[in-house]
């Protein structure tokens, strides 16, 4: 329906700053439709800030994020709203609304952003909870569930409006290896069967190698992107020692990634 040539998401000359403190600058990359794209890097490198800029929570200090040729931050509020509606976000700890049941959590976006009937919404909630393996948990409150279940419920909510793009913030954080693996599988399955573009922010190596098509490495020292490519190839052949060290879990601090302030 859309020509495959234009990128689904394109980040151009993006810079992120909190006040005078620059977190990242000179970010340039594009993500194709249906791709599973990873933003990785050490703690505090600004990968979550980048995701916030892409999902409309943090205004970048320079540059813009383009969705199918449409700039997000340069647009007016209505255009932004329209773009936001095409994106689903899974927050790090689920960020479910604690005073609503799971079904109500999933139903809320549909109630306010679509014209579906209550009966349809109820069916869709049950379907989406079944997709994430939470069949029958409609009437549970978030604090009655385990962390992994909360995360999956958050995913069901993120998918409530059939987004074209799903953002994941540290999907494996706080999960045991098996649950993390199951969530990774779920991400891949959704991407394959729905054709959803998936952007994952993580530093979890197992996830990176399991799901990434391409990965972007953000460096805390030089405050910009160092490498972009397939994780396995980057680990072997990347010109930057910092990237190779990160991907092979080495503790040495390479010369070109020292803390330059």
């Amino acid at each position: 329906m859309n020509d495959e040539g234009t990128a689904h998401i394109e980040v151009r000359d993006l810079a992120l700053a909190y006040g005078d403190r620059v977190v990242q600058e000179g970010l340039n990359f594009s993500i194709a439709r249906g791709e599973v794209f990873i933003i990785m890097g050490g703690s505090g490198c600004g990968k979550s800030s980048l995701m916030k800029a892409m999902t409309g929570l943090l205004r970048p200090s320079a540059g813009d994020v383009w969705y199918e040729g449409q700039p997000y931050w340069a647009g007016d509020e209505q255009q932004r709203q329209e773009i936001r509606q095409r994106c689903g976000v899974l927050f790090q700890s689920g960020a479910l609304w604690s005073s609503l049941t799971l079904a109500e959590n999933v139903a809320l976006p549909m109630r306010h952003r679509t014209r579906l009937s209550e009966a349809q919404i109820e069916e869709l909630c049950a379907w989406r909870l079944a997709l994430v393996g939470l069949r029958g948990f409609e009437d549970y409150y978030p604090n009655e569930l385990s962390g992994g279940m909360r995360k999956r419920a958050g995913l069901a909510r993120a998918m409530a409006l059939d987004p074209e793009i799903l953002y994941f913030d540290e999907p494996s954080a706080g999960l045991d290896p098996v649950s993390a693996r199951l969530l990774d599988d779920l991400i891949l399955e959704l991407s394959a069967s729905l054709g959803t573009t998936i952007v994952v922010v993580t530093h979890d190596l197992a996830s990176i190698f399991a799901i990434a098509g391409r990965a972007l490495y953000l460096d805390a020292g030089s405050r910009t992107q160092l490498a972009l490519g397939e994780p396995a190839a980057l680990r072997e052949h990347c010109e930057h020692a910092a990237v190779r060290a990160f991907l092979s879990r080495e503790a040495t601090v390479p010369a070109d990634a020292g803390e330059t302030g």
């Binding site: 379907w127 079944a130 997709l131 393996g133 779920l186 399955e189 394959a192 069967s193 054709g195």
Partner: peptide, 12 residues
């Protein structure tokens, strides 16, 4: 895609 999603929903 539909086949895969239905199987996914039925796994648990």
């Amino acid at each position: 895609g539909a086949r895969r999603l239905l199987r996914l929903a039925a796994t648990v």
